[in-house]
Write a protein that binds this DNA or RNA. Structure first.
Length: 267
DNA sequence: ACGTCCTCCTGTTCGC
DNA sequence: TGCGAACAGGAGGACG
């Protein structure tokens, strides 16, 4: 499931393939991927050149001549670059045809991903990006502390709240809690300001390391066939044995999400 | 304003 | 062995 490091990996890889290309047409065989009117989405993009590929949190932002659109991969979204003669895959739902005969195809087995037109010059200040908190590198301790302080929800749940900090998903939330040696069920309002600062710093470290490794491959995720290596570095997520005490890793649901932690080392 | 629950999907795993 | 049921999960929306 793509989180910030995976989306960043996709951005870096995909950018080289698509910047400068002109969109000839857009087809949407499964149009629920598009938020709003899919026909309108396709019509607006036709003839525009892809100028840049940005990222905010887990969102990709395609910058065109006059418009922009955001793309969220959710659980299993992927982008494929193929020649136009390539047979359409079962799970390819949005097709961008370029004037040079190549195509960008959005594939998503679970159809959870979404794309949405936004304004080119103001996309960070309008929905859906405007509701996001800062990425861990820009997060201010005081602001995060205020948010944590007024909630008794588990710290791991709050790590997944994109309006507090953005970019962290289930895998990295588990890893961050482990490195912090904190029980993921600890209420947010139990964290001191000092601990909050540590939480932000640990989030930065974990995401930095994952980006360096090219993300984490879980199930079918991969950016253009390049599989992330961070999975080999996972300490608790999907693990059986605690790397510190060699005890059993506990798996339980926390607010409906699979949560892995060591009951002895994380308190 | 906040917390909880439901929905969207399909491939995989599980139980009988 | 086979088939239906349960499960997984990010974000948005409904509801209290």
């Amino acid at each position: 499931m793509p989180e910030l490091p995976e989306v960043e990996t996709v951005r870096q890889t995909l950018k080289n393939f698509i910047v400068g290309k002109t969109i000839k047409s857009v087809e949407t065989p499964y149009d629920k991927i598009i938020v709003g009117n899919a026909k309108e989405f396709a019509r607006r993009l036709e003839g525009q050149i892809i100028c840049n590929l940005d990222r905010v949190g887990k969102y990709l932002i395609f910058i065109l001549d006059d418009d922009a659109f955001v793309s969220h991969l959710r659980m299993e979204g992927k982008y494929n670059i193929v020649e136009e003669s390539t047979e359409l895959g079962k799970h390819e739902h949005v097709i961008f045809k370029f004037t040079d005969g190549s195509e960008l195809r959005y594939a998503d087995t679970r159809k959870f991903g979404r794309m949405e037109l936004v304004s080119r010059d103001n996309y960070k200040d309008e929905l859906p990006l405007s509701k996001l908190g800062a990425e861990p590198w820009e997060a201010k301790t005081d602001e995060v502390y205020v948010r944590l302080h007024k909630s008794s929800l588990p710290i791991k749940t709050l790590l997944l709240d994109q309006s507090i900090m953005t970019g962290i998903g289930n895998i990295y939330a588990n890893e961050i809690c482990f490195r912090m040696r904190i029980n993921p069920k600890t209420p947010g309002n139990k964290l001191s300001k000092r601990r909050t600062a540590e939480l932000i710093k640990t989030s930065q470290e974990i995401l930095d390391e994952a980006i360096k490794q090219g993300g984490t491959t879980i199930h079918s995720f991969s950016a253009n066939g390049i599989d992330g290596l961070f999975q080999t570095k996972l300490q608790v997520h999907m693990q059986q044995e605690c790397p510190i005490c060699k005890g059993i890793i506990t798996k339980e649901q926390v607010n409906g999400r699979g949560t892995y932690y060591c009951k002895k080392c994380q308190r």
